[in-house]
Every structure is written in C-alpha cells, then in structure tokens.
C-alpha cells in the first residue's frame, strides 16, 4: 500500500529507507527519496510549532504532511524525535482510514522499539533487522 517509508533520527539522518520502486527504476526511487527528505520541512515545522495547550496529550501522529499530484505523505514523531514518514499513492489514500494509518505507525514504532532493545544494535546505525523488515514489508505489500 505504501510506496515509500523512512525512519529518520533526531538529527534528520535516515535510519531506515525503503521505496517500492524496482531497483531498475532509479528515477522513481530517486523521486520518492527526495520526497521523503523534503517532507522533513513540514515535520520540523509541525514539531517546532506545537501550540501549547493544543498538543498537551501529545499525539505522535502528525497526520497528512502534504499531498502532491500523485502522492500523499504522512508523518509521525516519537517523543525522542524519531520521525517516520510514509508515502501513499493518492488513489490508495482515498480509500484509506485514519485508523489504518495510526495502526501502521504504531506497528512501526513498536518494531523500532524492539530494534533498539536489541543489545547488539548500536544506536544510530542503519537498521538491519528481519523483524523490522517484516513489518515494513507488510505495510508496503501490494493489495
């Protein structure tokens, strides 16, 4: 369903990047990567401009970051400023409920928590975990 997904650390460097584009189609992959990267503009803005009082019980899910001609971008920020960005094709996004989105983000967050609980994982390194990968695969699988 999702076409691209990124887990980004607090310094805005990627911990995990994934796009559905086939390796041969460098152009699409490239475009999606840039999209993931530029979406940080909106994420940062949303994180920094949280209105006191409004975001008291901080909702980690940022919702739609913005939508383009073909894609819609969703964001999520953990309390430790780990950002998750998901790109969904506009056609898919139409038949897509808020709950599904939250469910995805929660699963990814959970998977990430498990990754960093692994004593062999050095914090800040690129994530290479089969379990994490499985969650991502599930989110990105075609339906």
């Amino acid at each position: 369903m999702a076409v691209a997904l990124a887990l980004i650390n607090k310094d805005n460097s990627p911990l995990y990047l994934r796009t559905v584009a086939e390796p041969a189609n460098g152009e699409v992959a490239h475009k999606l990567l840039y999209m993931l990267h530029t979406s940080l503009d909106v994420v940062e803005e949303k994180v920094n401009s949280s209105v006191p009082g409004k975001n008291d019980s901080r909702d980690l899910c940022l919702g739609v970051l913005y939508s383009l001609d073909e894609y819609k971008l969703y964001g999520y920020v953990t309390n430790t400023k780990i950002k998750i960005v998901i790109i969904v094709e506009l056609g898919v996004a139409v038949q897509f409920r808020d709950n599904d989105l939250r469910n995805w983000f929660n699963r990814l967050h959970q998977a990430y928590t498990e990754v960093i609980s692994n004593p062999f994982y050095v914090a800040g390194e690129e994530i290479k975990s089969k379990k994490f990968e499985a969650v991502v695969n599930d989110i990105m699988r075609k339906q």
Binding site: D11, N12, S13, L17, L33, H37
Partner: peptide
C-alpha cells in the same frame, strides 16, 4: 552533508 542521506548525497 549535514543530514547525511547517503543516496541523495552521492547523487
């Protein structure tokens, strides 16, 4: 370079 997205930076 600051944000270190390897693929973007390489390109």
């Amino acid at each position: 370079r600051q944000e270190r997205w390897p693929s973007l930076l390489t390109e």
